[in-house]
Amino acid sequence: MTERRRILFLLTLTVLMLCTDAKEPEELTVFCGAGLTGAFNEIGQIYENESGIGVDFNFDGVPALRAQIEQGAYADIVVSANLKHMDALEREGYIDNDTVEIFAGNKVAVIVPNDNPANITNLTDLAKPGVKILIGIKDLPAGDYARRVLDKLAVDPEYGPAYKEAVAANIVSEETTVNRIVSKVALGEADAGFAFISDVSPQMVGKVTRIVVPDEYNVVGKSPLGVLKHSKYPQEAQSFIGLVMSEEGQSILKKYGFIPVNENSMNWQAIDQTSSKVCDNWGRIRWI
């Protein structure tokens, strides 16, 4: 019996040791909006290489991330695609407000499948009956801004409220993350989708076509990031933010379609010049 007991004791000890961390490795936990996956994975890699501190990302829809933080989840940094949720978290006292910085801008774009079955070439085509459009849920930054764009179009005499209604009638689904909008449009399941310019990652670029919404109707989204009050590594978090704001970080963001804060964000020509594209007078960008 004592032999059996000893074996049991050793077994329990081993299991316990496997389950608990003897020593927690230094690591940054970054909650990041799903639309920023590509850009931040790259930035995170650079940070890991330079500082030796691991970066653990949690990519999800921004509203979902916010809900998780509100329910007590641990994170060092939160990166949002728009101000609304960051403001809310600041108000609720989760963020160290001094650390919040705007790191990039973003604009709404309409994406269509490459073969463009519904033949969408401009904004008016979106109102054609029978067109299938995807949009984000209203709490999603991309969804929120898309709706604001539609509101702007509604007050413009050239489009009017009937236009907005027609487009709304064409919406077939409200997705909870933009990645799904991009995937479904790329698959050809929908005729068009509202997303941020940056939501089309370099991997997806060849699979969809982006139609830029002209500036007079577009809404420039400001993307903030900040350090959470309960962070265990505030200094490391700050240096991560420093990397994001640096030239290196900003050029990565630009590569993924974001508007760097250092450039004139209202100038859509700037987007042109970063890549050789063909534009026509409708503000359409075609990826060659």
Binding site: L134, I137, I171, V172, S173, E174, E175, T176, R180
Partner: peptide, 11 residues
């Protein structure tokens, strides 16, 4: 959510 989508009243 993948196949039918997310639309109030319909899916």
């Amino acid at each position: 959510i993948m196949f039918a989508g997310n639309f109030q009243g319909r899916t």
